[in-house]
Write a protein that binds this DNA or RNA. Structure first.
Length: 123
DNA sequence: GGTTTGACCCGTT
DNA sequence: CAACGGGCCAAAC
């Protein structure tokens, strides 16, 4: 499975705008990209994201405030602990294995142009 | 070309 | 809190 190209590219743009110390959820990004209820594809997009983009991928977690479990073994599991360490290093604490979304969720300022583009294309 | 497979989410039981 | 079901839908097989 792979995310549709339009969604994928918007996700990359959105993720690149998440500031240090904040986190966004998969569903939130899908919504912002104009593709509500397509949270899974956001995960797909991130899994397929080239390292060369240098995206702050670690700032994307699931709606429960937890780091989403990777399917594979070995390196993928390492990515999970790395993600937590990167976030804690930025000042995003994990309490009981979860991030307090009410406090750390990214609240982007959506400009009028973007809102219009999304409204037009989101059918 | 039908089936399986996901870095997900949410309401219900 | 855990389990389940339904929504989502492009690829890989």
């Amino acid at each position: 499975m792979a995310a549709p190209a339009p969604l994928r590219d918007r996700v990359y743009l959105l993720v690149s705008r998440i500031p240090p110390g904040s986190v966004a959820t998969y569903g939130q990004l899908a919504e912002l990209a104009g593709y509500p209820r397509r949270a899974r594809f956001v995960g797909q997009a991130l899994a397929a994201a080239p390292r060369s983009l240098g995206l702050p991928w670690h700032r994307v977690i699931n709606a429960q405030g937890r780091i989403s479990p990777r399917r594979g073994e070995g390196r993928r599991r390492d990515a999970e602990s790395l993600q937590q360490r990167l976030l804690e290093a930025e000042g995003v604490p994990f309490v009981g294995g979860r991030v307090d979304l009410a406090r750390h969720r990214w609240q982007p300022v959506v400009d009028a142009a973007w809102a219009r583009a999304v409204a037009r294309e989101a059918r």
